[in-house]
């Protein structure tokens, strides 16, 4: 009897903790959208009024009036993220296939070397990369952002783990039938690896959309900025005009939120594969 009632109390406490945490975790995002739709006259009143009845698009119209660069920034961000995603998936699948299914001299050493670099903080490579890009004339050029991300260790690992589970007989049979390695890759591996490729694609796209540091360093002209770099500069321009700032922030957050809801399952899977990489 005693045990049951303690259990009940325990569960009730646990459940309220879950709810409480869900509220605090969602509150900032809700606040973002409430403020984005509340005109500044209501927001800067004393005390401010946040009433859904007052929701207007004023902040968005003013955002677009005062910064005609929002659209270029969005297009830049999309083009950079999309091209990185496409190439990264392709090259990582190629390498993942090789590490999973082919045997050759140096394979395990090479793979270990790849994995060990995951511990290297990006800031260590930042300065030499900047100097390198300046030297080869890619400073202030989107190629400087795209080029280093055409392949990546996480993707190679993810695809290798996935392709490893494919039956080897299938590949052998195809080879006996005279299929070339290219045919095997495009006709067998790629169709079967699609789920893992999708997981990688979502991670790469979202990661690139959200990145700030490298684009901030390597881009100079305002018109070439990505959305995140642009937003950071808007902050200086509109210091405390939070309505406009929140409209801009919402503009960057909505695509990510939509992707999240569309591909939630893939995201969970990708995280779990990442988690299986222990050291």
């Amino acid at each position: 009897m005693m045990e049951i009632s303690i259990k009940k109390v325990f569960r009730a406490v646990g459940f309220s903790l879950l709810i409480l945490w869900a509220i605090t975790s969602l509150l900032p995002l809700c606040w973002l959208f409430i403020s984005a739709f509340t005109p500044s006259d209501f927001m800067l009143k004393m005390p401010p009024e946040f009433n859904p009845l007052n929701f207007r698009l004023d902040n968005f119209t003013r955002l677009f009036e005062e910064t005609d660069l929002i659209w270029p920034w969005t297009i830049n961000t999309f083009l950079i993220a999309a091209s990185i995603t496409v190439f990264n998936i392709f090259f990582c699948t190629l390498a993942g296939y090789v590490f999973a299914k082919m045997e050759f001299w140096g394979r395990d050493v090479l793979f270990a070397a790849f994995l060990s670099t995951m511990m290297i903080p990006a800031q260590v490579t930042l300065i030499p990369m900047f100097l390198l890009m300046k030297k080869i004339g890619l400073y202030n050029n989107h190629a400087a952002i795209i080029l280093p991300q055409l392949a990546g260790v996480f993707g190679v690992f993810l695809l290798r783990q996935y392709i490893k589970t494919f039956p080897g007989d299938l590949l052998d049979a195809a080879r006996i039938d005279g299929a070339t390695e290219l045919q095997i890759f495009f006709k067998l591996i790629v169709p079967m690896a699609k789920p893992a490729m999708a997981v990688l694609g979502i991670f790469v796209f979202m990661g690139q959309w959200k990145s700030l540091l490298w684009p901030l360093i390597i881009l100079q002209d305002q018109v070439k900025f990505t959305l995140e770099v642009g937003l950071a500069t808007l902050q200086q321009q509109f210091a405390t005009n939070y309505g406009i700032l929140m409209a801009g922030a919402g503009f960057s957050a909505v695509p990510m939120i939509l992707i999240f809801f569309a591909f939630q399952q893939y995201l969970t899977e990708g995280l779990t594969v990442g988690g299986s990489l222990k050291g």
Binding site: S25, L29, K210, A253, M256, I257
Partner: peptide, 18 residues
């Protein structure tokens, strides 16, 4: 729990500054 992590550091930083 995962949704806030979907927004970028810039976006979250802007919200929290507000």
């Amino acid at each position: 729990y995962y949704l806030p992590g979907v927004a970028s550091g810039v976006v979250m930083g802007m919200i929290w500054r507000w």
